[in-house]
Simulated assay, not measured.
Amino acid sequence: MASGQEIDDSSNNNSSPKKVYKDPDDGRQRFLLELEFVQCLANPTYIHYLAQNRYFEDEAFIGYLKYLQYWQRPEYIKYIMYPHCLYFLELLQNASFRNAMAHPANKELTHRQQFYFWKNYRNNRLKHILPRPLPEPTVAPPSNALPPLLPPTATTMAASSAPVSAPPVPSPMQYGVPSGPPLAKNDPRNAIDRRKRKKDG
């Protein structure tokens, strides 16, 4: 009789519907938390922090990173403000990248490359977006144009190969010599010279 009661209890448990957890705010809080975490991955320093604290050694956390790839779908990607986070999320699927980000030198290198990307992105993008100017059309020579030039003769070649004489270079001594008449005896410059001579003598 007891066994029949146990069977009835088990059948009642199987037939009762399982309770499914439902977010009180229809998943809004979870959506915001996951969006914030994904966008934090745009910062190489934060990825370095996760690697230093051994988050990447936890299999559950690795699975969470795989789960977060749904942010690459069009209906979710429109909420992303920092698109680099999706690039780093893709790189974090690779174990070698996760291990490399534990080293400070790799963190600095990643941060530097990200900076150069931001610095040059607009100019590089404009090179591909802006239309290039059309090449100028070549004008056909008129029918009454002059005949082509004759090949140069030996005399013209010798004249063209002769070195061109450069203008004479002034001597540096010319800059110190004053132009014009010599200095008068009562010139103050001469007076200084005379005084010097008297002291020396």
Rank of each mutant, 00 (worst) to 15 (best):
P24V: 14
N94D: 06
I192D: 08
Y70C: 06
L32Q: 12
A166Q: 12
R132F: 12
P131D: 12
Q174G: 11
R122K: 09
G27S: 07
D23Y: 10
P131C: 08
W118C: 10
R112G: 09
L183H: 00
N14D: 14
A184W: 01
N13Y: 02
E90H: 01
N190G: 06
T153S: 15
Q39S: 11
Q52G: 08
G63M: 00
D25V: 05
E59S: 09
L109G: 03
Y82T: 14
P147S: 07
P141G: 02
F115K: 05
D193I: 13
T156E: 15
T156A: 07
V169A: 12
F88K: 00
P188V: 04
L146W: 02
D25H: 00
E136N: 11
N106G: 01
F115T: 06
D25M: 05
T156Q: 13
R98W: 01
N99D: 15
A140Q: 09
Y55R: 11
L32M: 15
V177R: 11
L149K: 03
E34F: 08
L35S: 15
G176V: 15
A145D: 04
W118R: 12
E108R: 11
K185P: 15
P188F: 09
A159R: 10
M157V: 12
P74W: 02
E59I: 03
Y55P: 00
S96D: 15
L92E: 04
M81Q: 11
W71C: 07
M173C: 02
F88D: 05
P163S: 13
K127R: 02
A191K: 04
G27E: 07
N123D: 15
S160I: 12
N190C: 13
R197P: 01
P163R: 01
L41A: 07
N14A: 15
P142F: 02
N14Y: 12
D25C: 00
L183W: 07
G180C: 06
R73C: 01
Q93E: 15
A42Q: 13
Q52M: 14
C40D: 09
A42C: 13
E57W: 02
V38Y: 03
N120G: 00
I129N: 00
K185S: 09
P142D: 13
T138G: 04
T156I: 09
D26K: 05
C40T: 13
P151F: 03
F56V: 13
D9I: 07
D8S: 01
V164I: 14
M1D: 13
L183T: 08
A184I: 08
C85D: 07
R195Q: 14
Q5H: 06
N144F: 06
Y121N: 12
Y46E: 09
H111C: 10
V169E: 11
Y79I: 04
S15W: 06
T156K: 03
S16M: 03
N53E: 13
E90V: 07
M101S: 10
P181R: 05
L183G: 02
H103M: 05
L41V: 04
I47K: 02
L130R: 13
T156S: 13
V164C: 13
F117C: 06
S179R: 10
